[in-house]
Design a binder for these strands. Structure first.
Lengths: 337, 337
DNA sequence: CTGGGAAACGAAAACGATTAATACCATAGA
DNA sequence: TCTATGGTATTAATCGTTTTCGTTTCCCAG
């Protein structure tokens, strides 16, 4: 392994000068610096990340917390897309992404411990139970952090405009003639309240009285629960003609329930998703849905995290960025019969 | 930050003893060791990963190379599932996963350089252009490495039984009455030859003469090219009655082409995918496909990589593990009309 | 020619851990 | 009583960088 010492030897200068030359720091003559850099390049010198991290307390590593209840955050397509956007920006700035776990040397540790252990420069939090005490601990430590769909006091965060998303969806359903519009929401946490707000806002503007029996809970990305919730709605004396699903993926459960009830989408029941997952563009009927700009969310999160890292220590107020959504008409909303 | 030195001070022993006690090494008395470990725990001591890595040349970090041509490996569902299986096993052993990129400190570097820079203990290679010179360079260095769907000389690898997968698919199509069975394969590299082998093996056993015009190339996961390839097949004077698609995702393109030709799946044309992506279970008609056991592949890869890390330096021959696939009947194969 | 100051360079101390070599000190055997 | 033995503990070197601070060199003004 080529080290500073080796370069120093070959150039007949001190290790200190080599370090300065390579990092373009003042304190070393221009031509000497050039000579040093040339031989460094010639020898294929690469700084040792561990040594640098040890000395500078900067690892250029970002921790990624991407888990859901089933510990399968990687399989959640929306968040993987977000992560991909995040990754691109971070990589441009020379950061590496680390999938955080809770095992270090075969012992289970907390997220915060992992952070300290690995000298992480920052943490990206998405698709997780935000009220996890370990996460709160992490957020209360002074680790630069950015989160999606949730704000931690004093940290940056990125959201889609959830209110507007559901609002637009309801408006569209109404425009197509629907009056009995139900909402199967995700668990009562995180973005759910915002989405519900959009739902009620639209109903109220349209002069439709909200019905308690038209709002039932499922879970995000939960096909089984959404299946059951849809059944419940269909069993009502006066069933809805249009159902807003928790998200695109969960809507598979809804569609299944509708099919199994002998009904068709959208002729008998209209449905609307949320997320705008790519593959839904290719299955027919194309899902009407509220598309989030996953890539943009990830990129924005990255920029915010870079900012937080930059200003580490200084007491910068956390900012929350809201990104627009786009309603996609699709083919699963038809006039009620 | 609490360090060994701090613990040593509090216990009135030397740093060396603390290190030994914490790592359960001989050379320190049982009761002293216990006392040291107790105060370490009390102080919330965590070893500094950078210092350890610097001293021991072991980072407990694994590099993950998950990219396709579009630099979007994370979005490839099959490989993300593989990665998830891989991750679970690795985490159990206390390893962290790092998404490898080619930017370090704003300068672009090669995979191998990144490896050295970050002291990676091993590398996981999947979903990538295996002939990339940088990858070859990496494989020729003595970095422990495991790959999916491709074998690098001297390294471990994991495959699905690709021959058998396509073989079974063709057999099933034949059993349902098909005789004109076409194959749209992925690019002529990697697993493609094995899959083609299965295709030809089945045809030959069934006494069906292979037709050159029934085998066309597309790309894996490429909806557009698969759309075009399907069109090409449908335009034949004697079009096939059943088409094997490069993979599940690409099959969307095939379905679209079939629809746009005014035909129906499976009444007019039968199709079969490859991969067994989860979400296809929920769209109707349910895709007939060859399911790979993604999780098992990832787990197996992890075990092999651990083995390679264990035996680093020793000249262990690379082993290649083949995992069984399962044909899923689905609903997209019907008797030809 | 000298004194002063800036620029170039080097020595050395960290960062936090691991580990070989060594010192210490009982106890046991001769 | 002296020496070997074995277990505990410490000393010190080291991993590869960064960074402070002191020293040297050199140039130019006085």
């Amino acid at each position: 392994m080529v080290t500073l010492k080796e370069i120093a030897r070959q150039c007949g200068v001190s290790v200190a000068s080599v370090s300065k030359a390579i990092n373009h720091m003042p304190g070393v003559g221009a031509q000497t610096a050039q000579r040093i850099r040339d031989t460094a390049r010639a020898l294929g010198y690469l700084p040792n990340a561990a040594a640098q991290a040890l000395k500078t307390n900067r690892s250029f590593n970002i921790g990624v917390l991407l888990e859901d209840d089933d510990n399968h955050g990687l399989l959640h397509q929306f968040f993987v897309s977000v992560l991909d956007g995040f990754r691109v920006v971070m990589e441009e700035q020379g950061y590496d992404l680390m999938l955080m776990n809770r095992t270090v040397g075969k012992r289970t540790i907390s997220y915060l411990e992992h952070c300290r252990h690995s000298n992480l420069d920052g943490v990206f939090v998405a698709c997780i139970d935000f009220s996890d005490p370990e996460l709160l601990e992490l957020a209360n430590a002074n680790v630069p952090l950015v989160s999606i769909d949730h704000t931690y006091e004093g940290h940056h965060s990125v959201y889609s405009d959830n209110v507007d998303g559901v609002y637009q969806a309801v408006l569209y359903a109404h425009e197509r003639g629907h009056r009995r519009i139900a909402y199967i929401s995700g668990a009562p946490a995180g973005v759910t309240s915002k989405r519900l707000e959009g739902y009620h806002k639209a109903l109220s503007e349209l002069g439709i009285a909200p019905r308690a029996d038209y709002h039932v809970y499922s879970r995000y990305r939960d096909i089984h629960r959404t299946y059951a919730a849809t059944q419940q709605l269909l069993a009502l004396k006066e069933p809805p003609t249009c159902i807003l699903m928790p998200d695109d993926y969960a809507s598979h459960g809804g569609q299944l329930a509708i099919q199994n009830a002998g009904l068709r989408v959208p002729q008998d029941i209209s449905i609307i998703g949320f997320d705008g997952l790519e593959y839904f563009k290719f299955i027919s009927p194309r899902l009407s849905t509220v598309a989030q700009n996953a890539t943009a969310i990830g990129e924005q999160a990255a920029r915010l995290l870079l900012l937080a890292i930059e200003n580490r220590g200084k007491d910068i107020p956390g900012q929350s960025v809201k990104l627009p959504v786009m309603f996609i008409k699709g083919e699963t909303v038809a006039p009620p019969n």
